Simulated assay, not measured.
Amino acid sequence: MSGLTDAALAADIAEAAGQVLLAVREELLDSGAEDQRAIAKAGDQRAQDFIAERLAAERPQDAVLSEEAKDDLSRLDAARVWIIDPLDGTKEFSQGRHDWAVHVALWEDGELAAGAVALPGIGQTLRSDDPPAVPAREDDSAPLRFAISRSHPSELITAVIEESGGGSVAMGSAGFKVCAVVRGEADAYVHAGGQFEWDSAAPIAVARAAGLFASRLDGSPMRYNQRDVYLPDLIVCRPADADRVRAAVDAATARA
């Protein structure tokens, strides 16, 4: 065991798994692989194996919830549960893009206790124990920039942008979008229509540590290590923008 704190371990594992993924992708592309689904599957599996092995060695008593592993629900009786997405953004990864991520979070006694999001494509890892300072907006009344899906923006986010008079910044994975708000590349991320706990746990841990507002669309808290891991919607933004974003979400929802 390394003796790392939980947050430091999350960051170390996420960053190392990101390097594993970069190596896997380079290896497959160099060998002439063209099937994007096969590249994504190989990356998912290799990262899952790496993370599972590290957690088993470093925190053998803890439970694990991962997108790429069977959930036997024993975690519901555990005080500490690692929530993992070995590869968030398989499409972006397999296409050779940069906007994908690795998520490693720890849930402890009812709350997210630590988290890290590796962004290997840009060589950065965001962590809850040392979050970056969210860049200040020059004009708090300026139109908001919403992080949206490059390939399939939802009807809701399109309506939210219209209601708020804002603009959009297109990008890939969920974790990358949350981190875009943390990093100041976007002002808000609103999602509805399908995510699971592993899609948001680590990004939300980092966002909260950085002082951002995070909630469900209806304003209720994000809750993790639930029996049903479906957690389909979220809002992430600066606290000063939360009322504007919530109002736009409410108006857009009423239109639907």
Results as ranks from 00 to 15, higher is better:
residue 3 G to N: 13
residue 9 L to P: 06
residue 11 A to L: 10
residue 15 E to M: 02
residue 17 A to T: 03
residue 18 G to S: 03
residue 20 V to I: 14
residue 26 E to M: 12
residue 29 L to Q: 11
residue 31 S to C: 04
residue 34 E to P: 00
residue 39 I to E: 01
residue 40 A to I: 12
residue 42 A to Y: 07
residue 48 Q to F: 05
residue 51 I to T: 09
residue 51 I to F: 08
residue 52 A to R: 09
residue 53 E to N: 04
residue 56 A to V: 10
residue 61 Q to C: 00
residue 62 D to Y: 14
residue 65 L to T: 05
residue 71 D to L: 12
residue 72 D to A: 08
residue 82 W to N: 00
residue 92 E to T: 14
residue 96 G to C: 12
residue 97 R to W: 14
residue 97 R to A: 13
residue 104 V to F: 02
residue 105 A to C: 05
residue 110 G to S: 06
residue 119 L to G: 03
residue 120 P to E: 08
residue 126 L to D: 08
residue 126 L to Q: 11
residue 133 A to D: 13
residue 141 S to W: 01
residue 146 F to D: 09
residue 152 H to P: 00
residue 153 P to F: 04
residue 160 V to G: 02
residue 163 E to M: 13
residue 167 G to M: 00
residue 168 S to N: 04
residue 170 A to C: 00
residue 171 M to Y: 06
residue 200 S to Q: 12
residue 200 S to L: 15
residue 207 A to D: 03
residue 215 S to I: 05
residue 220 S to Q: 06
residue 221 P to Q: 07
residue 224 Y to Q: 09
residue 224 Y to K: 14
residue 225 N to Q: 03
residue 229 V to P: 01
residue 230 Y to L: 05
residue 230 Y to A: 08
residue 237 C to N: 08
residue 244 R to T: 14
residue 245 V to A: 05
residue 251 A to C: 10
